[in-house]
């Protein structure tokens, strides 16, 4: 899947400059970087939820699933929310089981906690198959145990559906656990990209190195 180059500018301020690239099916791409480095902007434009400066649409046609950083819980039960993603009730039950939210199925989704909402939203997205899936910090509000369950689910989903998955995360550990490749954003620029063994372990760019050192890694 080819992604064209794009930029995003807010009031004369360039917040993102993406040079373009290619995403391969069955692979997980971690997007890392400091707060405000443009990760969410990248995710939203890639998902088609935000227009870039120049209307460069994806050159290839493919389906995109996207879980925003702030998930909207519709004023209905958690189960009904999940069934918005796809019709199969058995699949919904299975996902709720896997993410340990089966006991919340009949609860009003807009009354769930942050971590519960995130799990509901992840289940909702995984109800169907997409060619490309983009998750914006899906586990930021989750505890360690549910984070680990979610990571397992993400890995399984990619294996089963063969989709390409872009995972925005501020957790370097998470990127190392699940990603095949990593993209490091710094002040809106894609500073470094490549296999995780390079970018997340022995990066070329000094800024990336500094970022990793900050984590004590």
């Amino acid at each position: 899947m080819k992604i064209a180059a794009f930029t995003k500018t807010y009031e004369e301020r360039r917040v993102l400059d993406f040079p373009g690239g290619e995403l391969l099916p069955g692979r997980i791409y971690a997007v890392i970087g400091a707060n405000g480095s443009g990760k969410s902007t990248f995710a939203r434009i890639l998902a088609g939820a935000l227009a870039p400066d120049k209307k460069t649409v994806h050159p290839d046609r493919f389906t995109v699933g996207y879980m925003p950083q702030r998930n909207y819980a519709f004023r209905m039960s958690a189960r009904a929310n999940i069934l918005l993603g796809g019709k199969d009730p058995a699949r919904a039950a299975e996902l709720m089981e896997q993410l340990r939210i089966a006991h919340l199925a009949d609860k009003r989704a807009d009354r769930l906690s942050g971590g519960e909402t995130a799990r509901m939203a992840l289940a909702r997205l995984m109800m169907r198959r997409f060619d490309l899936v983009i998750l914006d910090e899906p586990t930021a509000a989750m505890d360690m145990e549910t984070t680990s369950l979610s990571e397992e689910l993400i890995l399984r989903y990619v294996k089963e559906t063969g989709c390409a998955l872009v995972l925005v995360t501020h957790s370097l550990q998470q990127a190392r656990r699940v990603a095949d490749e990593a993209l490091y954003f710094h002040k809106g620029a894609l500073l470094e990209q490549g296999p995780r063994e390079v970018v997340l372990v022995d990066p070329v760019q000094p800024e990336t190195r500094q970022f990793l050192e900050f984590y004590g890694l």
Partner: peptide, 11 residues
């Protein structure tokens, strides 16, 4: 938020 979420689900 509704639009972003719905779009993300391909609705």
């Amino acid at each position: 938020a509704v639009r972003e979420t719905a779009r993300g689900l391909g609705l």
